[in-house]
Amino acid sequence: MTPEAIHDALQQYFGEAITAFDADAIDPTVTVEASAIHDVGAYLRSEPDMLFDSLMCLSGVDYGEAQNSLGVVYHLHSTALRHTITLRVEAPRQDGVVPTVCDIWRTAEWHEREAFDLFGMRFDRHPDHRRILLPDDWEGHPLLKDYQVQEFYQGIPVPYEGDPPEIGMDVYRFQDREDLA
């Protein structure tokens, strides 16, 4: 199926919940209401002429403070019917909630954890909603555009503040070495 046909089918089935469609993009993208993504996913997974059985990639994106939204982008592929579509949902930057799709595609479970870890949107009904790459007690979500790194992590200063003082520094001059010059 072409992306247009997929979009039309989704539009017919979900109506209002499909907010936009970008057919000219490099990967044609359907924008979906955040609250509807689970239903849309289940529909795309099971409908006989969709059969999107593989979620290639799930990525979080920070669209910046101006737009005040975080996005989650789903790249879907059907191994049976060989078509692809990209879905996008947007959630507010503070306390954004997106329903999980990890009961539809199991791979989403860790990818959603990763998106939560790095961006901070919550995934509703996720069975194991923890950080994955960063330690559990890390503060903040590093891939946000306005992320400020915490000053201390468990007593260890975090930001790298230039070189430590040059004590006992023995300057080694490159030109003195004949074998290299």
Partner: peptide, 8 residues
């Protein structure tokens, strides 16, 4: 099935 669902 598991392999496809897990995106392997």
């Amino acid at each position: 099935e598991d392999a496809i669902s897990y995106g392997i």
